[in-house]
Computed example of a mutant assay.
Amino acid sequence: MLVVMALQLLVAELVVGVAQSKAVTCEPTQLMSCLKPILNGTPPPSKCCRKLKEQKPCMCRYMKDPSLAKYVKSPGAKKVAKACHVTP
C-alpha cells in the first residue's frame, strides 16, 4: 500500500513537471525583431528580448548553421544579448 502511494506521488510529480516545462520550437525567424538592433546597434525592443529568451536553447544549433552563425556570433548580437540579460 505504501509503495503504491509513493509511486502515485512520483507519477504526479512527473506529470506536473512535464506540464510546466515548455517545449521550444527552434525557429530563427522568431528573432526577426532582433535583426535591426544586431545590425544597427540600436536598443532591442522588449519583443526581441522575450523571443531571445525563448530561443536561448536553440543558440548552439544556430551557431552551427553557416547562414545564421555570422549574426549569432557578431558583436551586435552580443550587445543585444547583454541588453536583454541573456547569457550566451
Rank of each mutant, 00 (worst) to 15 (best):
S67A: 09
C26A: 10
P44F: 05
C49G: 05
V16A: 14
Q8R: 11
K47C: 04
V16F: 08
V16R: 15
L9F: 12
K36D: 09
G76P: 00
T87R: 15
Q55H: 07
M32Q: 12
K56S: 10
V15W: 04
A23C: 08
V86K: 04
E54T: 09
R50M: 10
K70Q: 08
P75W: 02
Q30T: 11
V11T: 15
S46Q: 15
P88T: 13
G41Q: 02
H85P: 00
L14E: 13
M59N: 10
C49T: 04
C34Q: 03
A83M: 04
A23M: 05
P88F: 13
K22V: 03
K47A: 11
A12F: 07
K56D: 05
S67E: 09
V4C: 13
S74H: 03
K47N: 11
K79C: 00
E27H: 14
D65V: 08
G17W: 05
K78R: 12
L14I: 15
M32Y: 09
V86N: 00
L31T: 00
Q55W: 04
P43T: 05
A19Q: 11
L9Y: 14
A23P: 02
K79H: 03
S74E: 04
S46V: 12
Q20M: 10
V72M: 05
M1I: 11
K47W: 06
D65A: 10
A12M: 09
T29P: 01
K79Y: 02
A77N: 01
D65S: 07
S74V: 01
M63E: 03
V3G: 12
P28R: 02
A12T: 08
K36T: 12
P88H: 11
L35Y: 09
E13Q: 15
A6L: 15
K70H: 11
V15K: 13
L7F: 15
H85Q: 12
M1K: 12
C48Q: 02
E27Y: 13
Q8E: 13
V11S: 11
V3H: 13
L31G: 01
Q8F: 11
C48A: 02
L39S: 05
Q30V: 01
L14W: 14
R50G: 08
L10T: 13
L52E: 10
K53H: 14
V86Y: 01
S46T: 13
C48Y: 00
A69C: 04
T42D: 10
A83D: 06
V18Y: 14
A12W: 06
S67V: 06
K51N: 13
D65C: 07
